[in-house]
Nucleic acid binder design. Structure first.
Length: 493
RNA sequence: GCCAAGGUGGCAGAGUCCGGCCGAACGCGGCGGCCUGCAGAGCCGCUUAUCGCCGGUUCAAAUCCGGCCCUUGGCUCCA
């Protein structure tokens, strides 16, 4: 059936048909003024799976993800540390941390990470085009986009332009007009709300804000124009997929469309994918509300696979609730996948697997699961559906091996491993098999287990349990099975 | 206030586009059994749903139509 994606432009799930190779994909990245939190990771992980799925389906993908390194919130942190002498120093620090966070949740790198500060020329050029085309006007060294002049405004959502409550700058001709270029540097009052430390020297922080010279005098770029300039600079005037968080659909994404299409006369992004919010209790997880877990903390306490499984256990276009119990459930899911994978792998490699044994229930279930997972991912990237499909593979493996008798179906188990590794590991990015590494940990473990078996045989259970507890403290879980002890790394660190 | 999304079992959450297979998925939890020195894991069985409220259409509605109530997101920096 091929991939179908919900396109915010139409609100409908549409067949995805790229214009040309490679598929061009832009993700509206972070404003790097602080550590990334789980809500950000949710977007990254879904973008990552979208890319992996496209590639698995035979598309080549060019993936661009920006960093906004020019922003008042960043300026508000200048001076907090000795090395943070200007906003770029702060931004560079958080870009490095953010890239590390992306790796923590097993996201593949984008092909480019453009930064605003590296694209000032492109931004100025784009603004000049807009002025020349009659869609922007200059006022006291600032430049504004003339929203009423662009008929295509409101493609993503209808903003009802009369909104009187929009903060109106006196230079704006219409309340919905927005700044493309802001004259001068930041004002003290522009950063006050974002300051995290009360003892910060605001004057010094403002002095750390960057300005650039332009045809309209020194100033700073507006937020929206950056993404238009960077995306078109890297992907062309029309590209395939634009992904962003739901919270910036308006006005940011809407304004991007207006700027880009007004300047080029061409369609901007063809498919708009919006990632819904991660919510805690009753509100969205966000930096400004302070109700968040950083990616680093979350992975440290739950483990990469649990976090990744959690984030993928709800479709990208539905909201997801964050809670301790939801994480526990995700940990259980990830654990089940990993255990079944390990069981199938061990069994296939053992003499108890026979290539002449055929279990049609196992094989049928595995084949059905593969199809279900493919259908789910094609259907608006339903990662939850893919995980549910894998659950049936887990059950089939367990039923066949744990509840069944040797000889086991070599071919069937091999298929089950293949499905788990393809869907689970390669596409969803869950590191099945990581816990197997314990078997390669060291020969010492084998010796310890042998001693423990001897203790158990002798009825010395207290000492046997003590050994198990000690290993547990080192994140190694021991399970006694019919085939002897099995060791695995704890999934939650 | 305006725009948008959503209200399904103890929890969480599919299904709603294209009405009947939904007597409602998968998972978690709970109960019982098997296995087991214990624990864990696993297997088998069981458990619990007036599908927000009211009305309508239909042989038939969680699914379609109308009204109402409630929650959340956007309208300001925000993935």
């Amino acid at each position: 059936m091929g991939l179908h994606l919900r396109n915010t432009l139409s609100g409908e799930v549409e067949a995805f048909e790229p214009r040309q190779r490679p598929v061009s994909m832009y993700f509206c990245g972070l404003t790097v003024s602080d550590r990334a939190h789980l809500g950000h990771a949710r977007s990254w992980v879904h973008v990552d799976v979208l890319r992996r799925w496209l590639e698995h389906r035979g598309h080549e993908v060019h993936h661009v993800e920006n960093f906004t390194d020019i922003n008042e919130k960043i300026v508000a942190r200048v001076g907090e540390r000795a090395a943070w002498t200007d906003e770029l120093a702060v931004a560079t620090h958080y870009i490095e941390r953010t890239l590390a966070d992306m790796r923590r949740v097993n996201c593949r790198r984008a092909h480019a990470y453009p930064r605003v500060s590296e694209h000032i020329d492109a931004i100025i050029e784009l603004i000049e085009r807009l002025i020349a085309a009659g869609y922007a006007y200059e006022e006291d060294g600032s430049v504004y986009f003339d929203v009423p002049a662009f008929e295509g405004y409101g493609q993503l959502i209808d903003p009802t332009l009369e909104a009187e409550e929009i903060s109106t700058h006196p230079d704006k001709r219409h309340p919905a007009d927005f700044a493309l270029w802001k004259a001068g540097t930041v004002d003290r009052k522009d950063i006050e709300d974002y300051v995290k430390r009360s003892d910060l020297d605001l004057e010094a922080a403002c002095a750390g804000a960057k300005t650039w010279s332009s045809p309209w005098g020194d100033g700073r770029p507006g937020w929206h124009i950056e993404c238009s300039a960077m995306s078109m600079n890297h992907l062309g005037e029309t590209f395939d997929i634009h992904v962003a968080g739901r919270d910036i659909a308006f006005p940011h994404n809407e304004n991007e469309i207006a700027q880009s299409e007004a300047a080029t006369g061409q369609p901007f992004a063809r498919y708009w994918i919006h990632i819904e919010m991660l919510e805690t209790e009753t509100e969205k997880m966000s930096s400004s509300l302070g109700n968040y877990f950083t990616v680093e903390d979350a992975v440290a306490s739950w483990g990469q696979d649990t976090i990744r499984t959690f984030l993928l256990s709800a479709s990208h276009d539905t909201r997801q609730a964050f809670s301790e119990s939801a994480l526990e459930e995700a940990a259980a899911r990830a654990d089940r996948l990993d255990r079944a994978h390990a069981l199938a792998t061990e069994t296939v490699d053992s003499p108890e697997a026979s290539s002449t044994t055929i279990d049609t229930t196992l094989r049928d279930t595995v084949e059905q699961a593969r199809q279900d997972a493919y259908t789910a991912l094609d259907d608006n990237l339903d990662t939850r559906g893919a995980l549910v499909a894998l659950e049936s593979v887990v059950s089939a493996i367990n039923s066949h091996v744990e509840a069944g008798d040797a000889p086991y179906d070599y071919g069937g188990l091999l298929s089950s491993i293949e499905v788990l590794e393809t869907i689970g590991r390669a596409i969803l990015g869950i590191n099945l098999g990581a816990s197997d590494q314990v078997s390669e940990l060291t020969d010492i473990l084998d010796d310890i287990l042998r001693i423990r078996e001897a203790l158990r045989a002798a009825g010395e259970y207290e000492w046997a349990d003590e050994l198990r507890n000690v290993l547990h403290d080192h994140n190694i879980e021991i399970e006694d099975t019919d085939d002897g002890p099995r060791a695995r790394l704890s999934s939650t660190d």
